[in-house]
Nucleic acid binder design. Structure first.
Lengths: 317, 317
DNA sequence: CGATTCTATAACGTCAGGTTATGCGGCGGG
DNA sequence: CCCGCCGCATAACCTGACGTTATAGAATCG
């Protein structure tokens, strides 16, 4: 029944003392104010202004409306400003869920960039493996999930989610072979997977283990997996102790050196794609978009650019 | 930029958890909600809802809007209710200005009627002679003026106000002749003004005096006005003391008896019109309209009906 | 008393915001 | 596993609220 324009008009009349004054104050024409008042009056069921001669006064109902208009308009302005602040990156929040090795490098750099550009935007961060992070995204518990997919497989959940989510490629993370220092293959440069059909394997997280199996299957053998652990420091320890070899993504290798481990490339080369996942709607939230951009920038920056093909360096876990 | 409908929609979505639910809650169709949200989003510059699968969640900006919507809408509802209360005679105020003899009878009865019918309506009352009461009306210091006009003259001010004001006739108040008890003419019933050409006169308020002069002029004589006072009790005292005769409106006579005074009708009969005056705008204020109605009813009720022509009674001042 | 400056009215254009009809995708039950 | 229901999106369309300009009438002031 009451609309904001009407309140604005009543307040302007109260402030200016005339229809014409209210009109110029609001940027309207005078007849607009005149018939707006008439509309308001017939909706209200009572006179709101008392025109005697050519002076205009508010009636009791009109004064009431004008008085109330103040609080309503300021409340609306506050709401408008609050939303504008979020839209204008002067406020807001982005909740990120990322898997551990992304948490170590990619995410911190990106968040630093966001914080530098938009100091008022709060970014919160949760560590979660891809299946859970996507579940969190779906459940509304986070805004952005950093996930990974080994080549040929999907990101995490059933394929049905690939279209409802909006996925942005960040970088390709090559999968390397981790060998104990001094291992005969350590100096070859590129190791053919077939050379490892009799090796003892140490597997990482379930999906990494799946990838190992699929690689070996391509080479027509089944790996002897003797250890399984989600903790990559433990993997490195096991490799260094000479208990087996392991496939470890490049990104993890860079986060922590382990003096007893050497990495080399593997043939056939395989990599995992690291992606940022969100929903189409959240992608239209400026803070989320800004964070996505920052992630892309960091991913493509030289610091995080894939070191292969530039294989002269060894990477320690 | 933000409109009330939009806030209502956001709040409904927050409450119901779905567009369809919000639509039925608001009495809209579902597409109405859908495109309203889209409009809001492109105005806001950010996504407000996050649709994943077939569930809908509010984004941070959306939650902000929904939360603020509560206070804005309740403020608007309060304003609406306050105005509706005034329009519905559950609140409000009427400021009356009336001349003394109306204050004594007509106004109190009418106000009692108003108070009985609309207990929440506050009626305030100021005593003022017609010229000032109309000035107060014009200045916005009162809503309703009870004034009188002797036949042939206007209500009070220059005639220019007769059209800007809205005038409602209440009753005709016959002007009577006040004589001291025992005066030879006291028993005649109707006294011809011509019989009083040699009398000594006592005049009331300036306008009443004007009326006396004009009556005498019609009878081709000029009255001998020995006393002037605005106080009718004083007039009565003077008449009772045999110091002169006076013209006194019927309405005043009824308010107070004075044992030393008798009243009779005068020929040519003359009366003053008692009118309620307000502005066209204020007439559309329900409380004012109700008060006007009450005044009319009281004026036309038997209690205040003119006792003449039923001249068998004498009235004492 | 005429000029100025108010408000009211008429006539008209436009766009916000509603409707119905329809399509499509997700989720749950047989 | 598929099918049916349910909920959101889109298209096409309609209406009326609300703005405009043009003009008239009335009140105040010099």
């Amino acid at each position: 029944m009451i609309d904001v324009a009407g309140l604005r008009v009543m307040k302007a009349i109260a402030d200016e003392g005339s229809f014409t004054g209210a009109a110029v104050a609001l940027g309207y024409s005078q007849p607009a104010v005149s018939q707006m008042v008439r509309r308001l009056e017939q909706r209200a069921g009572t006179a709101l202004v008392d025109r005697v001669g050519r002076t205009v006064r508010l009636t009791e109902a009109g004064q009431t409306l004008a008085r109330r208009a103040g609080e309503v308009l300021s409340a609306i302005d506050a709401a408008e400003e609050e939303v504008a602040a979020i839209a204008g990156l002067r406020a807001g929040r982005v909740r990120i869920a990322a898997f551990p090795s992304a948490s170590a490098t990619l995410v911190p750099k990106a968040l630093a960039l966001v914080k530098q550009r938009y100091p008022e935007v709060a970014v919160t961060f949760t560590e979660a493996e891809p299946p859970e992070s996507l579940a969190a995204l779906r459940a509304g518990d986070c805004d952005l999930a950093i996930a990974f997919a080994y080549e040929g497989t999907d990101v995490g959940r059933g394929e049905e989610d690939l279209d409802v989510f909006s996925t942005r490629h960040l970088l390709d993370d090559e999968v390397l072979l981790a060998l104990p220092t001094g291992h005969p293959l350590a100096s070859v440069g590129v190791v053919d997977i077939d050379q490892l059909r009799d090796a003892t394997w140490i597997a990482g997280c379930p999906r990494c283990r799946g990838h190992l199996l699929s690689m070996c299957r391509s080479a027509d053998f089944s790996p002897d997996v003797a250890f399984e652990t989600e903790d990559y420091v433990a993997v490195a320890g096991l490799v260094a102790a000479g208990l087996g070899v392991a496939l470890i993504p490049d990104l993890i290798v860079r986060t922590a050196h382990h003096p007893g481990v050497v990495t080399t490339r593997v043939r056939p080369a395989s990599k995992r794609q690291i992606v940022a996942v969100t929903t189409p709607d959240l992608e239209r939230v400026p803070a989320v978009a800004a964070t996505l951009d920052a992630l892309c920038e960091v991913a493509h920056s030289s610091e995080l650019a894939p070191t292969f093909p530039a294989p002269e360096l060894d990477y320690y876990l």
